[in-house]
Simulated scan of single mutants.
Amino acid sequence: MHLTVVSSLDSQCREAATARLRRTHTNSVVVLHDLLDGSLVMRRVYRGGQLFERETTVLEHGCLSCTVKLDVVPTAERLAACGFDHVVLGLPPGVAAGMAVAELRRGLSQPAVMDNAILALDPVDLDDHIWDRHTLFESGFTSMPEDDRTSGEFLIGEFGHVDTVMLHPGLGAELSGNPRLGSEEWVTGVELLGQLAPHAAAIGADDDFRSGCFDGAEAAARTRPGVVRLPLDDETGSFRTVLHKAGRPLHPGRFREALPQLAAGTHWLRGRLWIASAAKTRIAVQGIGPRVWLESTGTWLADAPTVARNGKVGADVDAVLDWHPNYGDRGTVLAITGRSEDIDPQEIRALLEGCQLTEAEMELDFGVWEDPLDLSEAL
């Protein structure tokens, strides 16, 4: 059995993508799942573009993960048993493709080939989604009040997991009467997509689509906290990504002051930090539109036990590439993506270099510094 998973925030984009995907195999079936109010899941199944099953199920605990476990996975299992060669699963808006792929691998009783993990998107909306401060629930994308992700957080997460982004005018185009396709806003959105998901194939209605290119190991490597992957450098475009590295630990106080300036106006900030007050801790940083947060991802490989370190370095591409003869993999690596007029490489470099410990400060015991994770008031 072959599976294709489609995630989205826009049901019209999702349905356009699934309709196209059913044509990639001769014996395909398309399933559209929607999580409604009252823990109600609506499931529609199409074959050859014709609806042949429509069911609703009430879940005891109607969350996105339960929808996948209790409805998406069993439906895929049942349709495979019916003899379909290819099942296209259109996930409820806001359900992450990575979560669905993981649950399918755990929950299916028979082997399945994951052909593709796809995000369906109207690129005209991308910039607004990144900067939207509302949660997915507040924006009406999910029926779960507890879902406090923003649309930007959802999309950046999806860009890491998927191999393909299918582009189609969404509900906004239909409501406004503006076709959008090929407009200046469309072109700008596709350009931003290239900066945020450089690995993904961006497929328009007339573009060729290559089925069967999902690589789960590569998706996991891309989405590991603190990992930095860069797009091709293009200084002439509307958007750009700047990379900067700092070889010495950062002073926690000076970094706290600099972080709002680093994050201001950036669509996506990501990387890892070496902060003096937690010198053995690899701290991942991520900023998506108006939100910035830090998280501990364990110790640096250089501070791990020798046996573990020798076992990990070969599989950790970032550690190998950034290995320093004295500091090992310790160091700050930041990538910042935003509009070209808002991103000044010299300013970023000056800010980060000013955060590094001086030679005199390097001689001090790192225990004198304050807690680096208490940065919430600066964001």
Score class of each variant (00 low, 15 high):
3 L>R: 01
6 V>L: 04
10 D>T: 12
18 T>L: 09
18 T>W: 05
19 A>R: 03
21 L>P: 00
27 N>D: 07
41 V>G: 03
44 R>S: 14
56 T>F: 03
57 T>V: 14
60 E>V: 06
61 H>Y: 13
67 T>S: 10
74 P>R: 11
76 A>V: 08
80 A>F: 13
81 A>Y: 10
88 V>P: 02
89 L>A: 05
97 A>R: 00
100 A>S: 15
105 R>C: 10
110 Q>M: 11
117 A>L: 05
122 D>R: 00
123 P>H: 01
142 T>E: 01
145 P>K: 12
155 L>C: 06
157 G>S: 04
163 D>L: 07
165 V>F: 02
174 E>N: 04
175 L>N: 07
179 P>W: 14
182 G>I: 01
182 G>A: 04
190 V>Q: 14
191 E>N: 10
198 P>T: 12
199 H>P: 13
202 A>T: 15
207 D>L: 06
215 D>W: 10
226 G>K: 02
233 D>H: 14
234 D>W: 07
241 T>I: 01
242 V>E: 11
244 H>P: 01
246 A>C: 15
247 G>W: 03
252 P>C: 11
255 F>P: 11
269 L>F: 04
270 R>T: 12
274 W>H: 07
275 I>L: 05
279 A>W: 12
290 P>E: 13
295 E>G: 12
298 G>R: 04
302 A>E: 06
303 D>I: 10
305 P>R: 15
326 N>A: 13
334 L>P: 05
345 P>V: 04
349 R>Q: 15
352 L>E: 15
367 G>N: 14
373 L>H: 06
377 E>V: 12
